[in-house]
Computed example of a mutant assay.
Amino acid sequence: MSSNDIGTNIIFKKQLGLNYEIDQKYVGLKMKENNVLAFNFRVPGSLKDEVETYFKKFKLGEPIMVDIGGTGDIKCDFKGISPVLKNHDELDQYFISATLQEDKQYDPLEEEKCESCSGCGFH
C-alpha cells in the first residue's frame, strides 16, 4: 500500500497488543460533542459475538487506540458499549455500538510555555 492509500480496515488496539481488526464496511462512525466517537457496528451473526466480546474486555475510562484505514492511531478512552440488537428488517444482522472519547490533550509549542511551567494546565 502506498502512503496515499487508505485501507479498508479499522483496528481497535487495547494495551498488551490485544487488537481487533474489522472491515470498515461493517462500521459507521458518528462524531458527537466533546470529542465523543460512536462506532456503530452492523454485523452478521458470525461477527456479533467477537465484536461484543472484544469491547466487553474494557473498563470505563480505559485507554484504547483506533487506526482507521492505516491513517494512524487515534488515542481515546473507552466510554461504553450498547446492548446487541437484532435488526428485524434484515436476516442475521445485528447492531452494537462502542463509544469512545478522543483524547485531545493540547501540546503547546516550547515558546508558548511560561518559564516556570511544569504542565500547569493553562497552556
Rank of each mutant, 00 (worst) to 15 (best):
R42Y: 12
N87R: 08
E102H: 03
Q101I: 04
I64S: 00
K56E: 13
F55Q: 01
L29F: 03
T99V: 02
Y106R: 10
F41R: 08
G80P: 00
Q105M: 13
I68D: 06
E111Q: 11
K79S: 01
S97W: 01
D73I: 05
E52A: 15
K14Y: 04
N4C: 07
K30A: 10
L18F: 04
K113P: 11
L16K: 03
S3R: 02
I64T: 09
Y106L: 14
V84Y: 05
D89F: 08
L47K: 15
I96D: 05
N9H: 08
G121V: 00
S46W: 09
K30D: 05
R42C: 12
T71I: 06
G17T: 11
I22P: 02
S3V: 07
E102W: 02
T71Q: 15
Y94N: 13
E50A: 15
S2Q: 09
V84K: 03
K13Q: 07
S118P: 04
I11Q: 03
F95R: 09
I68C: 12
E115N: 09
K48S: 13
Y54E: 11
A98V: 15
Q15Y: 04
F12S: 02
F58K: 01
I22W: 02
E50N: 15
S116K: 12
S116M: 11
I11G: 01
F55C: 04
V66C: 01
K57A: 13
K32W: 01
F95N: 12
L16Y: 03
